[in-house]
Design a protein around this nucleic acid. Structure first.
Lengths: 349, 349
DNA sequence: CGCTCCTTTGGTACCGGTTACATAAACCGG
DNA sequence: CCGGTTTATGTAACCGGTACCAAAGGAGCG
């Protein structure tokens, strides 16, 4: 009832349309803010008749509760973050999608951060960590100490495709066995001299693929290359090494760290008159959409599932699960297409 | 100084590690919260010596300001949202990336929401609107009245690839002229009987492409199909109509509403022994990565730029720009590859 | 030496919700 | 008709910052 002209300091501000708050609703409905709040949250401690009055007031004033006020009071953001290098490849998009899907189901919004080698990535991740209840971090985005700092602040973290860090869950896909199965398949084709394209230093995944690659070759008694052909993850990176490859004498196969590399390489080779798989076989990794159309032999990873798994792990932590960190490993699958050569059955060894 | 034991109700809460607040820092540094706040925000009204003490306290207590408290006081989220149907195609991923890139540069986080025909999409969008300072909404995600509601609440909205709504900016790509240029190119190939694959009801973009398609055919005096062959936007949708097409007598060309449709169709046709472009030509739209490897003639859209543009428009509105809504149209570009047949020069008309 | 003016700092009322605790009203068996 | 519950509501203290206003201390000046 009291319309006591508020006389405190700090009145207007954004001059814009006044926001209707829970107190306005309370006044309008002739009840206290506590009752409005209870009605809002569906507490059963509100008399039906009162609830009706409150609902009417809410309707009439077109009131929408402020997420900020609510979050501050509840001390939770109801939001998760995810950090990835970029979204230009199809790879991360799938992971993000799986993550978003599960997070949304659990009632959490998703904040994304693409680091795309911004120099300020570290600070941006720390900032993001302050806006969420949990954070998923992809490999090769930020330094370990940044992740450690986030963990230290008490924000649950799940790592994806990245070496483990104390106190954080992780989700990875299997690489060593998969790489070995690629090599075995290529050996069955009769291929012997194999090169590996990619930089193991850049990523845990690549390092493991490289290790599996070497291991399988060694086990088969085949020639094991000393080192990889260094390259990034983009089509351009693949194209760039084509000349070097042809000049240095072609191997039988080039096993690439991902599909984009493989595809870029294949096109660049073709421009130099080198045919795939005729003159050299090529394999990729990820099984992106373009790989299907380019007939690229590759390894399929359950990317969507990886994102979904990460979201669920985070949810558990946020909900108070204090058990030992989990480290999930998802299985991968060899996908044979024509880029590794005609099928052994059809071609004499 | 006064350590007055706080005796109010409501003490502990999440029992977890206590959060250090600005008041702790103030006490520790022997100054007031106002001074700490000023030091935090880099105000020049703080004596260097004082600032040093404050910084030391912050360091010592490992204090991190709460984004929530700050946002509530500043009445801004420092975050933008973006709503899209899904992220599985390469299309939206690019747009989101462009959006995120600009938003991050402007100091805003990005909240994503993928509606993927969830029945609760409307509420989710309204919820999202309460967590951001501005919202970008893609076509075919939520109903017009939901968007209107968001606008009405005072949250700036920019629409992407969607018909205009009062009070909201929009960014689209050019469709009519581009569709006409596709048709003209196909006519130059000697193709006459053309079909259009896609559902104009689903999307403004498709409707415009269909209109441009018909217009160009009519203008050339060629046969204008009565209706489109309805289809969604996925490879499956394209594959599904292959049988129907071959059964009904093949046209010279199938112009598809997007690349995924075109690619799915092409593969399904091949399985039925129908060759592209030998037996029928096919064109797509978007120029996704796979289109390059499949040799698909298509229309390239500046997807990244669309996202970036949307982020900038929003920033202007959030910063208080109250001018008339803007409606940007980005130009597109025909990309000719082999799926529309041998080049006219090489093939007699 | 007294008096402005300027630089720093402190006190405190917000931002918009939630909820512990107190209180009042309604219900109940004896 | 009364003490004891149970149910419904109000009061006010938080959540963790920001910024307005006032005031204290120093410098500069006549």
């Amino acid at each position: 009832m009291e319309d006591a002209e508020p006389k405190g300091p700090q009145r207007r501000r954004t001059a814009g349309r006044a926001n209707v708050t829970i107190r306005d609703v309370a006044r309008h409905a002739g009840v206290s803010v506590a009752t409005v709040s209870r009605a809002l949250r569906g507490s059963d401690l509100v008399h039906p008749a009162t609830r009706e009055r409150v609902d009417a007031a809410i309707e009439e004033l077109r009131f929408t509760p402020s997420q900020l006020g609510r979050s501050l009071a509840e001390r939770r953001h109801a939001a998760n973050g995810i950090v990835f290098p970029d979204l230009s490849g199809p790879f991360y998009a799938e992971v993000v999608l799986g993550y978003e899907e599960v997070a949304a189901t659990l009632g959490r919004s998703v904040l994304i951060l693409s680091t795309q080698n911004r120099e300020s990535a570290d600070e941006m991740v720390l900032d993001l960590a302050g806006r969420v209840d949990g954070l998923a971090v992809f490999g090769r985005t930020v330094h370990d100490d940044v992740v450690a700092e986030v963990v230290q602040r008490g924000v649950p973290v799940v790592l994806m495709a990245r070496t483990e860090i104390a106190g954080a869950d992780s989700v990875r896909t299997e690489n060593v066995v998969a790489a070995a199965s690629v090599v075995d398949h290529l050996l069955a084709h009769g291929h012997r001299r194999m090169a590996f394209l990619g930089d193991p230093v850049d990523s845990t995944d690549v390092a493991e693929r490289w290790a599996g690659f070497r291991g399988a070759l060694a086990q088969a008694g085949a020639e094991v290359p000393e080192r990889t052909i260094p390259a990034g993850f983009k089509e351009d990176d693949g194209a760039r090494v084509a000349a070097e490859l042809t000049a240095g004498g072609l191997p039988d196969v080039v096993v690439c760290a991902n599909d984009e590399l493989a595809l870029g390489l294949t096109v660049a080779l073709a421009e130099q008159g080198v045919q795939v798989p005729g003159d050299v076989a090529v394999t990729g990794w990820d099984d992106v959409m373009a790989a299907r159309y380019a007939g690229l032999t590759t390894v399929r990873q359950p990317m969507r599932e990886m994102g979904a798994r990460a979201a669920r792990l985070l949810d558990a932590r946020i909900s108070g699960d204090h058990s030992e960190p989990r480290h999930d490993v998802l299985t991968t699958q060899l996908v044979v297409r024509r880029s590794c050569g005609p099928h052994p059955k059809e071609a004499p060894r």
